[in-house]
Structures are given as C-alpha cells and as structure tokens.
Amino acid sequence: MFSWGYFLQQSMNGIILGCIYALLALGMTVVYGILRLINFAHGSLITVGAFFVYFIFFRAGLSLPASVFLVLGFGGLMGLVLDTIAYRKLRGGPEVALLITSLGFYTFVENFMKMVVSPQPYAFKTPPYLSIMYKTQFLTFRSIDVFIIVSSIIIMLIFHLFVKKSKMGIAMRAVAENLEIARLMGIEVNRVISLTFVLGSAIAAFTGFLWGAKYGQISYDMGFLTGVKAFVAVVVGGVGSIPGAMLGGFVLGLAEILSIAFLPTRFAEYRDGIVFAILIVVLLLRPAGIMGVKEEVRV
C-alpha cells in the first residue's frame, strides 16, 4: 500500500542516511582525487569518532558543543597521524601499497577497538534534548534528525566554500589535477595532502557521532561497511567530484531506505546488496558516475 505520508517519512530517513554517506564521501573523494587511494582507513574514523564522543559526551559529561568541537579536532589529529606515519613514505610508490596500508590501518583500528571497548555493541543513548519528538501532519521526527540535517548542511557548505574559494582549496584542486605542476607553483604538496586527510578525518569522526546518535548503537566494526558504502557513493556521484560525492551520498541513502521501505519485507536483509546493485546500474549507464569529472571538463 503506497501512501504519501509513508513515502515522505521514509524519504526523510533516506536523506538523513544520505547526509551521513555524503559527509563520509567528501573526505574519500578528495583523497581519491589526489592519491587515487580508496581510503579504507576512513571507515575507522567513524568507529573511533563514535566511541570518542561516547566517552567524552556520555561518560565524562562534556557539553554537546564541546564534544562536537573535540571530536572534530580528534578526528583531524588522527588523519594527520595516519598520513604522516602510514602514507607519506609510500607516495610515489605503487598505488596498491597505499591501498594495502589503508586496509591494514583499518584492520588494526578495528581489532584495537575490539580489544579496548569489547566486541559487544554499546548503546548510544541520546540526551533528552536530542530526542524530542515532533509530529506534523505528514512527518514525525526527532530533534536529532534536525541536528543531523542542519550540521551536515553546514559542514558541506563550509567544505564547498573552502574548496572553491580559499587559496588552500584551489591548491587542493590543483594538486588533484596535476601534482607535478602544482609543485612547480611552489605548493608544498605534502602539506596539502595532509590537510585533505585532516579535514576528511575530522568530518568522518563527527559522522561517527551522528551515526551513533541516530541509530542508538555503536560497535567496534561499525566503520567498515559504512566506509565502503561511502566509497560507493563517491563512485556513483563521480570519482573526484565533490558535488558528485554529496549527490552520490544522498542517492545512496535514499535508495537504500526507500528500497527496504517499499520492497516486500523479505528483501530487507538485502539492503547492503541493494547498495551495490545501484552502483552497478549507475556505472553501466554512466561509467564516470553521475557527475563524473570527465564529463565536467568536456567543452
């Protein structure tokens, strides 16, 4: 039975999941754009960020703004460490070495988390002011939903403006297009690359918090599939394209939620499979993704 109310409700859920994918895809697409690296380590930041907030916000009782600020900083620092100790030495070598390293880093973090926080999922209880229910004629939502949508839009806007307008942002795009020539311009390429890791990781850690607050549960392995799906969003949107990554995130989130909402219930367990089916269909129709860079450049 189709009803518009149900459709709207599910669309909102899809958009919220889309926000999460889009935020993660941002960090992955800029890193891919520069290093041609599918950064699996990105997923580990989701887990680590979620647990970081769990401990400082719920256990230690820091305020929400302080927690948000700190998790961004913490994620950024992790990104810097990751780039400095794991990736920097490998630049210029075969790309597969980077890929294996990022998988290794992810695996390390996952096992480390399993050891430290236990293999059991943690309940991530949202504070009352994030669980206020709002009922309108068509939609029911909680304050956390508003928080996710608003904070995601703010982050995407800032990121977009940064990349489009700031000197560093222009340098970042230059490095992504041609690292050699960027170096000739006097750009310290390693610093630009570090910065992309810092920004992407900060956002990913924050996204871990959003995920926990929205779905109420966090676990040591939460980052893997989410990270992989975020990369699917990158590819669907068009690898290397920042608007594409955001669009890909929303397409994926909506498709994932709406397909389980409207397909017979026995398909619900295939939700992850559905994501990859979307990937295959999009790539068959548009090999460079929805907003693929190749198309963008054409005269």
Partner: peptide, 22 residues
Amino acid sequence: PEGRGIFNRLTVEENLLLGAYS
C-alpha cells in the same frame, strides 16, 4: 613547463592565482 601545464579543470583566474601561491 613544457606543454604549458595548465590546470584544465580550474578557471583561468584560478590558474593565475596559483602562480602567486607563494
């Protein structure tokens, strides 16, 4: 550079600004 090394995906002005990066 040889072959000009223009950043094809950037605007003309962004290319010029990159020249002044330092």
